[in-house]
């Protein structure tokens, strides 16, 4: 009998503790597949964030470091500079990367740090209970903006890809929306390119994944995907913002 589907080697046996339908699980699996496909499991070091994916070190089979909230790009910098032949990635939510960790991500990008960043933009602080994130859309409700985000009080959502693409440092910046089969395929390809860039000695690569949070959004998983398509995509347009 031929085996046609199995768990990637880079994923551990620990079952994901994510909510049903959460794209964190999907993106974890894609990262693991990419590590397997590139054959870099033995030299990959992952940096996980503070957020729902804080336990990523349990799910991956590569060496892992748990960073403080927002500091993953600095931690990754420390690792990569000491071990230039390693493959170093960070995995960060929007609170982690686009709020508390803005300085670290901007400067890692500006330095062209040879790391791969997987940025999960779900428009909320999933882990702490659905508070407003820097990427929460205008009008979108959260536990700290129950009437919907009001620009006059809370400013505007941050478009990380567009912002980082103004810098000369990054090699690859892209935004993907894994809400349908085409989007899923593009997401996997983007993650693979971000990792391959590092294998090829290229600089900073970032993949922003428009993700969901069915639990805090109070939607079914299917509703959450249509919501991304209808509301998030128009503001955070998928595309390639830098490729050099």
């Amino acid at each position: 009998m031929q085996k046609v589907f199995e768990k990637p080697q880079a994923l551990s046996d620990t079952p994901f503790a994510y909510c049903p339908g959460c794209l964190h699980s999907v993106v974890h699996r894609m990262i693991a597949e990419v590590i397997d496909e590139l054959g870099v499991l033995d030299r990959t070091i992952g940096i996980c964030p503070v957020g729902c994916s804080v336990f990523m070190y349990e799910y991956m089979e590569c060496d892992m470091i748990e960073a403080a909230h927002g500091r993953a790009p600095a931690v990754a910098t420390g690792v990569k500079r000491m071990l230039p032949d390693s493959v170093v990635f960070t995995y960060q939510g929007d609170g982690d990367l686009a709020s508390i960790g803005t300085a670290e991500i901007v400067h890692a990008a500006a330095r062209g740090e040879k790391i791969s960043v997987i940025f999960i933009n779900n428009g909320t602080y999933g882990m702490t209970g659905g508070q407003m994130a820097p990427t929460t859309l205008i009008g979108q409700k959260s536990s700290t903006c129950p009437g919907g985000r009001d620009a006059a009080a809370a400013g505007y959502p941050i478009r990380v890809c567009e912002m980082l693409a103004t810098l000369d440092g990054p090699s690859y910046i892209t935004r993907v929306a894994p809400v349908d089969p085409v989007g899923l395929t593009k997401t996997k390809m983007a993650i693979k390119k971000a990792f391959r860039n590092q294998v090829d000695g290229k600089g900073f690569s970032l993949v922003e994944v428009l993700s969901n949070c069915p639990t805090q959004w109070k939607m079914t998983p299917v509703e959450s995907l249509s919501w991304i398509d209808e509301n998030v995509v128009p503001y955070f347009q998928p595309g390639v913002f830098a490729d050099r």
Partner: peptide
């Protein structure tokens, strides 16, 4: 580094190696 916060976290990563 871009700040002392980043510097100590780079030390954290580098010391991990």
């Amino acid at each position: 580094a871009e700040s002392e916060v980043a510097a100590i976290n780079m030390v954290y990563g580098a010391a991990s190696t």
